[in-house]
């Protein structure tokens, strides 16, 4: 992995290249392709027979009430939970498409820690609370072999700046941060390895409304600037509208509606989607 030692200028060049790749992706086929994903808890279905495709730079929102199976699906897609059945294919930077659950554990770990990111709702699940913010952000670089402290430090500084963190706090423990700041550190920790695909589970859940709004702005800016593909699970339709290009509505483990975000939210076809949208609009 050479990502770790790229200079900032080179990195932005790579970002441009990624954007170009995203345009060309129509020919290259989907970045992530899931077919017939099902997972069960005992007799109850977590998610059932879900298929989807995600292209480079595309942001997919998954909405539904709690218990609808959206987090189970997210975990299946993010290689965190092996589904009972179904296929998950991913196109690597090399252009080769691989069966994610067919990879060895070492290969899968590497993939999920370099080319992918995962932002947890609770920053405690995604951060090491006992080491500094800077070390949290630098971990991925060190995991793939970065061995120059100064370089690591520079990249950490760069990413903490991009998520608008106060650099004075770089060597402080995340446990001393507010929820919003912790979430920014978690995002930087994921993006430092320049992933092409990021999974997010209620990334703004549990935050104050004003903090939420600033974080959403940041996320939207970052996904746009970096050409990130993302799968975002949320119960908040406003978040889905702001961030996602396409939207999936889930209920009882199944996808009941799937389409462009504006289409689904403005003109829902499925009865349950209509209920979901109207109930939100009423509140």
């Amino acid at each position: 992995m050479t990502v770790a030692t790229l200079e900032p200028t080179e990195r932005s060049r790579r970002a441009d290249q990624d954007a170009a790749d995203a345009v060309a992706a129509a020919d290259a086929g989907p970045l992530l392709k899931a077919a017939g994903i099902s997972h069960f808890y005992g007799a109850r279905a977590g998610c059932e027979n879900v298929s989807l495709e995600l292209r480079s730079g595309e942001v997919l929102g998954i909405v539904g009430e709690s218990g609808s199976g959206k987090t189970t699906l997210l975990n299946c897609l993010a290689a965190r939970l092996r589904p009972a059945s179904g296929q998950l294919a991913y196109r690597l930077t090399t252009g080769r498409t691989v069966d994610v659950y067919g990879l060895s554990e070492a290969e899968r770990r590497r993939l999920t820690r370099t080319d992918w990111g995962f932002v947890h709702q609770n920053p405690r699940d995604g951060l090491r609370m006992a080491v500094s913010a800077g070390a949290n952000v630098g971990e991925r670089l060190m995991a793939v072999g970065a061995r120059h402290y100064g370089d690591i430090r520079d990249q950490v500084t760069d990413w903490l700046t991009r998520v608008e963190m106060d650099l004075e706090r770089m060597d402080d423990l995340p446990s001393t941060f507010s929820g919003g700041m912790q979430q920014r550190v978690q995002i930087a920790r994921n993006l430092v390895s320049q992933p092409r695909l990021v999974f997010m589970d209620e990334p703004t859940g549990g935050l104050d409304v004003s903090v939420q709004a600033r974080l959403l702005d940041l996320l939207r800016g970052l996904t746009n600037d970096l050409g990130l593909a993302a799968v975002i699970v949320t119960h908040d339709l406003a978040v889905a509208r702001l961030l996602s290009h396409r939207l999936m509505v889930m209920r009882q483990g199944r996808v009941v509606e799937h389409g462009l975000t504006d289409q689904v939210l403005d003109d829902p076809q499925d009865a349950y989607s209509q209920l979901l949208v109207s109930s939100v609009l009423q509140t």
Binding site: V131, G134, G138
Partner: peptide, 8 residues
């Protein structure tokens, strides 16, 4: 990460 933390 531990060594980084020491140096920081």
């Amino acid at each position: 990460v531990k060594l980084y933390e020491d140096i920081a």
